[in-house]
Computed example of a mutant assay.
Amino acid sequence: MEKKLVIRLIGAFSATDGEGNPFVLAGRKDRAVLAFLAAHPARPIARERLVELIWPEAADGAGRASLRQSLSTIRKAIPQSDPLLVDRDTVAFSLDCATTDVKMLEDGSRSERIIGNMPLANGEAFLDDLGGISAEFDTWRATEHSRIVSLVSDLVDGVARNAEGSGDINKAVAALSQLVSLDPLNEASQRRYMRALIASGQANSAIRRYRMLEKLLQDELGVTPEQATRAVLTEAKERAGQGAVKGSDHPVAATQLAPSEDAVPELVVYRFRDLSDDADTRQFAEGLSDSIAGALSLVSGLIVVSRPDTSRPNGADADATEARERFALHGNVRKTGHQIRVGARLIGQPSGRVFWAEDYDR
Rank of each mutant, 00 (worst) to 15 (best):
Y193K: 06
K171H: 09
L298C: 12
K335M: 00
A92V: 12
S166M: 08
T99L: 13
H40C: 05
A121G: 04
L176I: 03
H338S: 13
E220D: 00
A228P: 00
I133D: 12
L302W: 05
R345H: 03
L151P: 03
V51M: 03
E144H: 01
M104D: 15
V305Y: 05
L221K: 13
I133H: 09
L25R: 05
D87E: 07
V33E: 11
V232C: 00
V342C: 02
S300W: 15
Y360R: 02
D361F: 10
P83E: 12
K3V: 13
W55Q: 01
A295T: 09
R113S: 15
A244L: 12
S81E: 07
P265T: 00
G294W: 10
E164R: 07
S81M: 02
V149G: 12
E325C: 05
E220P: 05
A240D: 14
S166T: 09
I74P: 01
G123W: 04
S289F: 10
T281S: 14
S177M: 08
E238A: 13
G247H: 04
A39F: 15
V268A: 11
A92K: 12
L50K: 11
R110T: 04
S200V: 10
R110L: 07
R43M: 02
E19Y: 10
P22F: 09
A92P: 15
G108Y: 09
S189E: 07
W55V: 02
D319V: 02
L288T: 08
A62S: 00
N170K: 12
F137Y: 13
V232S: 02
A121T: 00
S260Q: 12
W140H: 15
T90F: 12
S291N: 04
V223K: 11
D82A: 08
H145S: 06
P225Y: 06
R208V: 03
A316Y: 10
G243Y: 12
I169P: 05
S289E: 09
E144W: 06
V152H: 00
G352T: 11
I148F: 01
